[in-house]
């Protein structure tokens, strides 16, 4: 039987917040330039989604920053953390921070991330990069969730097997 994977509570909570906010970002991000919801949107929905997108991407950035601090420097020494995918979580946090800057460059091209917008080739190209990274961050997180399941004692079931008496 596989060893039980122990993850500190704060790390679990932070990933839950991250994943929840990411769901909002992915939906609203695709919705903005990908009107796959033709025909039923209401006039207020798009503006609401953009506002939610902003709130969610700020949430993701802050949680990722705190997570990086916790994982690399701030974790108490007596806390057990034997997850083999720890480095994967750090990569997710770094990607999220990059995506936060990209979002700022997309939604506010002449704002404080205007330099990034110009460096990536202007609003059109930044939109393409945003779209591509929207896919990347979505798929990388799906791969992480699957990997986390694959290395857990539950795999290939959804629940952990009962301990043999």
């Amino acid at each position: 039987m596989k060893e039980k994977v122990n993850i500190p509570g704060p790390a679990k909570v932070m990933y839950a917040i991250y994943a929840g906010a990411l769901a909002v970002v992915v939906y609203s991000g695709f919705d903005y330039l990908h009107p796959f919801v033709s025909g039923w949107r209401y006039p207020w929905s798009n503006a609401l989604l953009q506002t939610l997108n902003f709130l969610a991407i700020w949430t993701i950035a802050l949680v990722s920053f705190v997570f990086l601090y916790y994982a690399l420097l701030g974790k108490p020494k007596n806390v057990e953390w034997n997850e083999r995918l720890g480095i994967f979580r750090i990569i997710l946090a770094v990607i999220a921070l990059w995506f936060f800057f990209l979002s700022m460059a997309v939604y506010q091209p002449w704002g404080w991330m205007g330099g990034l917008n110009a460096a990536l080739g202007g609003p059109i190209k930044v939109n393409k990069w945003y779209e591509i990274w929207l896919w990347i961050i979505l798929l990388v997180n799906l791969i992480y969730v699957y990997s986390r399941w694959a290395v857990s004692e539950r795999f290939p079931r959804l629940t952990a097997p009962k301990k043999a008496e």
Binding site: E131, I132, L142, A150
Partner: peptide
């Protein structure tokens, strides 16, 4: 289009995950 790339990558991810699952099973 970025969307096409995205769907291709999503397909590749699904195939990879499915292959891993079947291999393990």
């Amino acid at each position: 289009a970025p969307d096409v790339l995205g769907w291709v990558a999503a397909g590749a991810t699904a195939v990879g995950v499915g292959a891993h699952y079947l291999y393990k099973q």
